[in-house]
Design a protein around this nucleic acid. Structure first.
Lengths: 138, 138
DNA sequence: CCGGTTCGTCCGAAATCTGGACTTACGATA
DNA sequence: TATCGTAAGTCCAGATTTCGGACGAACCGG
């Protein structure tokens, strides 16, 4: 998890990934939509390309223009985005509901569910009791 | 999602939350395990308490000592953590496998699965075709 | 008394982020 | 032809964060 955050935990990184999921692949469009400083976004796009999450494709030369696409690794970030949105919607949304919703082919919103990897049963959060054994050092 | 990241997207924040899930509720223990600067971690714990994710409980006075517990909102971050770990394990792990694993009561590791909110069907990533319609503003 | 533990704070240095101006190269408009 | 708009950045100086390490207070055990 620490490794994930090294790649994806920098400011604006996940927002940029979300934009590409929403179909906004161009620099200026992302700047407009997420409001990041151009400088920072440019740096972030570079690191995400280096990390193998985006692929940078030229769509015009002379005025050299580029678009960003998700690699397979990038597409696998989808659940992260949905999960984060889900938490924000539950705990942080104000009167105005969630602005952007990702939808299933049936038209209903998507969510993630915690399940056991082998038995497939939905799971609840394992919570350690308040007074657990506390070993001083080891 | 942007709102989620404002709360939880700062450096070390999710690592600290993970530590509490793992039962490490004390300042020094977190510092040792995640390697954050003490200063930064102290600041982060404050913001997480302010955000209603942690609750700070005193477990001894005179040398005033505190532990951090998850609120309900904090416990709801569990899927976020699992999802992030899942992505890192798939795309970033080296020869040595994932170090910390969260387990189901049956002893198997947990994962999250993308499903439709209403029909419950597993979903795959919706991917917009390369040359989607591009409307300038809306 | 001495060392160890715990939970921080304080400090100056380093890294990162920020907003805005600027650049280059078109195409469209007047 | 001059000007406007768009696109994808770069450059810069200043603000904000993070960093590592030293320090302090308050206890405990020997």
């Amino acid at each position: 998890m620490a490794r994930s955050l090294e790649v994806v935990g920098e400011k604006w990184a996940l927002l940029a990934v979300r934009e590409v999921f929403l179909g906004n692949r161009r620099f200026d469009e992302m700047v407009r939509r997420i409001g990041a400083p151009r400088d920072t976004l440019a740096a972030r796009l570079r690191t995400l390309v280096d990390a193998g999450i985006f692929e940078r494709r030229q769509y015009s030369d002379h005025p050299a223009r580029f678009e960003y696409f998700l690699t397979d690794a990038g597409k696998d970030l989808y659940p992260v985005i949905v999960t984060l949105r889900q938490w924000g919607d539950r705990h942080l949304s104000e009167q105005d509901g969630p602005p952007a919703v990702f939808t299933h082919t049936c038209g209903q919103p998507l969510m993630t569910r915690l399940v056991c990897e082998s038995c497939g049963q939905p799971a609840s959060v394992p919570f350690r009791p308040p007074s657990a054994t506390h070993q001083p050092a080891s």
